[in-house]
Design a protein around this nucleic acid. Structure first.
Length: 492
RNA sequence: CGGGACGUAGCGCAGGCCGGUAGCGCACCAGGCUGGGGGUCUGGGGGUCGCAAGUUCGAAUCUUGUCGUCCCGACCA
C-alpha cells in the first residue's frame, strides 16, 4: 500500500500530481519549473506525436527544424508578438564560464564572454522562422509553404504545474505562408479540425471548436482559433490553438512574393501548435481515484497479461500458453506486455497497472487454462469477464474499441452536462461556483467587459464557438445588447 | 512577486519544545513459505539530519543567515 492516491474529491490538484508522479509519467527535476518526462509518460507523447505527425503529413506539411536561439533584434520585429512574450523569456547573455579565482572548484560567468547581441531562448518560433522564410519565398510558385517543427520551447512562467505549465515544454508548431487571405484562413481552420479530430478520436476527449476573444488572442495574430476541453473538476483547458496571422509577420520580416499578375504583395500566414500539455489534459479528462485511465489508442501498453501460478510447473504451463497468445495479440497490432516478474504478486500488479491506466488486463492461471479461458478486466469500468482463449485477439480488439468509445462518451456526457446557459449575473455567479463547467452567456463584445468579468469571477471567455447560433440578448454584466452567447469558464 | 508549507536513508515521515551513540514504514539485498486484488517470516545493507556561520564540553535539536522545492494567488499554453 505504498502508492496511495489522494482522492480527487478531497484535493483535485493533489490528485492530479499523485497520478503524474505515481503513475510514472514524470518527475520533478533539479531545475525549478522543469520536469523530467519519464519513459512511460514519454511513450504517451510519442504516440501523440506519431499520430499528429501523420495527420500533418496527410494535410501536406513537412517537418523542419529551426534554432533554439533567436537574436533579440529578430525577436523584437513583430511588436505585438514580442511584447506578449517579453516577460517570460530566458535570455542568453554570455557564452563562456571560467574558474572562479576566489572559490576553488566553482565556476563563474566570464565577463569577457559577453555576447554582442543577446539571444532569446525561443518561447515560440515565429521570429526566427519568418526571418528564414524571407529568403525562401519570392514567387507565388513558392507558396504555399507548409512547415511543421517538433521542438522544445521555454516560457519562464511564474508558477508551473506538471505537464500543464512547465518552464520548458515539448510541442509542435506549424508555420505556413500563403498567397491569399482565404487560403490562410482555410489552413487555420483545417489545422483546428485536425486538432479536434485528434483530441476526440485519439484522446477520447470531446472539445469545443471556437474563436478566441481579442483578450485571449495569440500575441501577433489576427484571429486565434482553439479547441477547448473540460476537465473533471469543471475547469476548462485550452488544448490546442491555430492562429490566422494575417500579414503581420510578413510585414515585420518583409516577406513579399510576386503573384501571377507580377504584383508584389506580402504573404499571409498561419501558425498552430499543441504541446505536452495534452498529456495533462488526457490525465484530467479520464482518470479516477485508482489512477490513470488511458484511451487504448494512446496507451503505451494496451493489454497486460498477469500470470497466476503456484510453483514452477504451473508457471511453465502458463508461460507456454502466454507465448502463443502474446504472439497472436501482437500480430493483431495490439501493444501487449507479459508481466511475469516474480518479485510482485498478482494483487500488486493489478493495482499497479490500474495506476498506470493500462486499458485491458488479462489474468491467466492454471484454472483458466484447464477451462480454455482467460480473465479479462477493463480499466475504465473495472468490469471483469471471462473470455475464451480461442479467438481472443479478435475479442480484445473489439474490447479496446469499446473502451475507446466508452471513455469518450463518458467525457462527452460530462462535458455536455456542464454547458449551461446563464441569463442573469446572479445565475452566472452561482453556476460558476456551484455547477462549474462552461457557461453560455451573452456578452457585449468589449474587452473592458471581459476584463471586468475576469476580475470579478476569474472566469474568462474560453471561446466563441464556431457555427454559434445567433440569438439576441443582453450582456450578462452590462446589459448592453448582444447577438450571441459565448462560453465562459474558469480555466487552467 | 505576495501568502503558506517543507527540506532527516531511494520514497513517505517521526524525533526538535526539554542539546548527550540516528529512528519508523515502504523500497533495496540474501533466503524461506507463498501466489485468483497492493501476502508473510528470518537475516542484512544504506545517513556529513539542505548549506553556512554562531552559542556550547557536546547541535538534527538553540540562534542568525542562506539556498532550494512544493502548494495557493496574480501571469500564462
Amino acid at each position: 500500500m505504498s502508492k496511495e492516491i489522494t482522492s480527487k474529491a478531497v484535493d483535485y490538484s493533489q490528485w492530479y500530481n499523485d497520478l503524474i508522479i505515481k503513475g510514472g509519467l514524470a518527475d520533478y527535476s533539479a531545475v525549478r519549473g522543469c520536469m523530467v518526462i519519464k519513459p512511460y509518460g514519454y511513450a504517451i507523447w510519442e504516440n501523440m506525436r506519431d499520430q499528429l505527425d501523420k495527420m500533418f503529413k496527410e494535410t501536406g506539411h513537412e517537418n523542419a527544424y529551426f534554432p533554439l536561439f533567436v537574436p533579440k533584434s529578430l525577436f523584437e520585429a513583430e511588436e505585438k508578438n514580442a511584447e506578449g512574450f517579453a516577460k517570460e523569456c530566458a535570455i542568453v547573455t554570455h557564452y563562456r564560464l571560467k574558474a572562479d579565482p576566489e572559490n576553488k572548484g566553482k565556476l563563474i560567468v566570464d565577463p569577457e564572454a559577453k555576447l554582442e547581441e543577446e539571444l532569446v531562448v525561443r518561447p515560440t518560433s515565429e521570429a526566427i522562422i519568418w526571418n528564414t522564410y524571407k529568403g525562401w519565398i519570392q514567387s507565388y510558385r513558392d507558396l504555399p509553404l507548409l512547415i511543421n517543427q517538433w521542438a522544445n520551447v521555454v516560457r519562464w512562467e511564474m508558477r508551473t504545474r506538471l505537464f500543464l505549465r512547465t518552464a520548458e515544454f515539448l510541442w509542435q508548431e506549424g508555420h505556413t505562408a500563403h498567397a491569399t487571405q482565404e487560403e490562410a484562413v482555410e489552413e487555420t481552420v483545417q489545422m483546428l479540425n485536425v486538432y479536434a479530430t485528434f483530441a476526440e478520436t485519439f484522446m477520447a476527449m470531446p472539445v469545443i471548436k471556437g474563436v478566441k476573444s481579442a483578450n485571449e488572442r495569440f500575441a501577433g495574430a489576427e484571429d486565434t482559433y482553439c479547441i477547448e476541453a473540460l476537465m473533471q473538476d469543471g475547469k476548462a483547458l485550452q488544448a490546442g490553438t491555430s492562429h490566422f496571422l494575417g500579414q503581420n509577420f510578413a510585414k515585420a520580416f518583409d516577406v513579399k512574393f510576386t503573384d501571377k499578375e507580377n504584383k508584389l504583395d506580402y504573404v499571409w500566414a498561419t501558425s498552430w501548435g499543441v504541446s505536452t500539455r495534452l498529456i495533462g489534459a488526457l490525465v484530467m479528462a479520464h482518470s479516477d481515484d485508482q489512477g490513470l485511465v488511458l484511451p487504448p489508442k494512446l496507451a503505451p501498453i494496451q493489454v497486460v497479461i498477469v500470470p497466476i501460478f503456484k510453483g514452477e510447473e504451473q508457471k511453465q504451463l502458463i508461460d507456454e500458453k502466454v507465448k502463443v497468445l502474446q504472439q497472436q495479440l501482437k500480430t493483431a497490432g495490439i501493444k501487449v506486455k507479459y508481466d511475469d516478474n516474480d518479485n510482485n504478486r498478482p494483487g500488486w500488479k493489478f493495482a499497479e497497472y490500474e495506476m498506470k491506466g493500462v486499458p485491458v488486463r488479462i489474468a491467466i492461471g492454471a484454472r483458466d487454462i484447464a477451462n480454455n479461458v482467460v480473465e479479462v478486466a477493463r480499466r475504465d469500468t473495472k468490469e471483469k469477464m471471462s473470455m475464451p482463449i480461442d479467438g481472443l485477439a479478435e475479442n480484445i480488439i473489439q474490447l479496446l474499441g469499446d473502451i475507446q468509445a466508452a471513455i469518450f462518451n463518458k467525457a462527452k456526457h460530462f462535458r455536455d452536462d456542464h454547458i449551461t446557459d446563464a441569463n442573469s449575473w446572479a445565475e452566472f455567479i452561482e453556476l460558476l461556483d456551484e455547477k462549474t463547467g462552461f457557461i453560455a452567456a451573452h456578452w457585449d463584445g468589449t474587452s473592458e467587459t471581459e476584463d471586468k468579468i475576469k476580475e470579478l469571477t476569474k472566469a474568462t471567455i474560453r471561446c466563441i464557438p464556431l457555427n454559434n447560433k445567433a440569438e439576441e440578448g443582453k450582456c450578462i454584466l452590462t446589459g448592453n445588447s448582444s447577438s450571441q452567447r459565448v462560453l465562459f469558464a474558469r480555466a487552467y
